[in-house]
Design a protein around this nucleic acid. Structure first.
Lengths: 243, 243
DNA sequence: CGCATTGTTGATCTATGTCAAGGACCGTGG
DNA sequence: CCACGGTCCTTGACATAGATCAACAATGCG
């Protein structure tokens, strides 16, 4: 955790940032971004580090530079539901405190731009671009969350997993090959995938191997999946627009 | 369906509106609201009327005066998931067109303020209050949708239904009685409840009767439920903050 | 080389979806 | 007034997806 940066260093912060061109950061002008970065701290956290408590809330605001954050909530029976994953360029504001809130953790090792809450509210006041960007982000999140809701509600585990594999091409590292297939880096552990899809590790594992047996995918190793038969992977999912 | 109203009539539009003090309308000043209402059409629709298509999108913007709208999406297998319910005072903008979109229907008979798309964008441009109200609404919706996601993902049908009963006190007609219990007007048909909770009519029916046998509720008639034992209704749901 | 983490596989059991039938209620028209 | 059809709700029988429990394999790390 480093001290706040002076203006001169601001450019440096964004230099290695993988989110510069997407999400909130992506829709900000150079000037605006520079002013904003000037009050950021760069923070690095290991996987599973807690970024934000559910009850106590959190006094910081973050932009993701690299890695993934997960928003999650637990039932008393211990079941965890992942409500969303924030990727580079996206922001995590302090969630509503108390009941109904969620907590934020690093799903992978992450690098974050951290803003003090007050500082950020000041920025928000001074930078209309930032306000607009955040408003837009919350609409995009709303759409993503609605889609997740739909996937959870309308599909069985089998289809849910296929949906996730196909949709993941848009937000996880994805390497298309010449033969039309492509390799997905499933950077999240099985348990996270399970908690995202509201199912269990075991089911995810079983289904992946079933897909492999059926020739839909190839499991190169647990984290590298080659998607082969898009046609059958997307069976019944046409509504999602995943070809 | 009536013609657009002249300014003089604007006040009249809101007169009978049950949403004047909540949602978007609730956070607007008199002046702003008057200007906005001036370009509204008042529309009345019967239950199950289609307000907005999923694919074609829709060229109107609506504020709910009374009744409920449901946002929903279908899987190819015919399963419907209700993504959210808009109540008086809330707005339904044209959802994203095409895949991933949802359709909007009247869940009950409704009265709506309808705005032409272009007109509304003009209003949005001229009324900063309106912009702010909509931005705020999308954040509230995001929270509601996240909560739904959590309920769907982390809870079984039994707990889901109990959660809905308790939470419904905040947005469906609710009449507390002297003895501490209270009567809920479950204004939605069983099928809608089922599609909201991602379960089936049959299960909803069975669970309600089971709750009655266990003394948690009394089914006065299919649409009137008296909540009796909050303690046990909220078992395992403490996280939601429902007493 | 242990030891911890992560993923896989098997056996079992149950909640709940599906199918099918019937009941309650309501408005309409004869 | 009653018969009719419609909608909404309830109940029963049955099948099964997937959760749970438990053990084990694979991988990586100190």
């Amino acid at each position: 955790m480093t001290a706040p940066l002076r203006n001169a260093e601001a450019a440096f912060v964004c230099a290695g940032c993988r989110g510069r061109n997407s999400g909130v950061c992506g829709s900000l002008s150079e000037g605006s971004l520079a002013r904003i970065c000037a009050s950021a701290q760069m923070v690095t956290l290991p996987a599973n580090a807690r970024v934000c408590e559910a009850e106590r809330g959190c006094s910081h605001f973050h932009l993701v530079q690299s890695g993934y954050l997960r928003m999650q909530s637990h039932s008393l029976s211990g079941r965890r539901q992942i409500l969303g994953v924030a990727r580079p360029g996206e922001s995590i504001g302090p969630p509503r405190r108390g009941v109904g809130g969620y907590e934020v953790e690093a799903a992978t090792p992450v690098r974050l731009c951290r803003f003090d809450r007050l500082t950020f509210e000041l920025l928000l006041h001074e930078e209309p671009e930032l306000r607009r960007a955040l408003c837009q982000q919350s609409q995009i999140w709303l759409e993503k969350t609605r889609r997740l809701t739909w996937v959870l509600g309308a599909l069985g585990s089998n289809a849910r997993l296929r949906a996730m594999l196909l949709l993941s091409r848009d937000w996880l590292p994805w390497q298309p090959l010449e033969d039309g297939t492509g390799v997905l880096s499933l950077d999240l552990p099985r348990q996270d995938i399970a908690d995202f899809l509201a199912t269990t590790q075991e089911t995810v594992s079983r289904l992946l191997h079933q897909f492999e047996d059926d020739g839909l995918i190839e499991i190169i190793n647990p984290r590298k999946i080659r998607l082969i038969d898009y046609e059958r992977l997307s069976e019944g999912l046409d509504v999602l627009g995943v070809a």
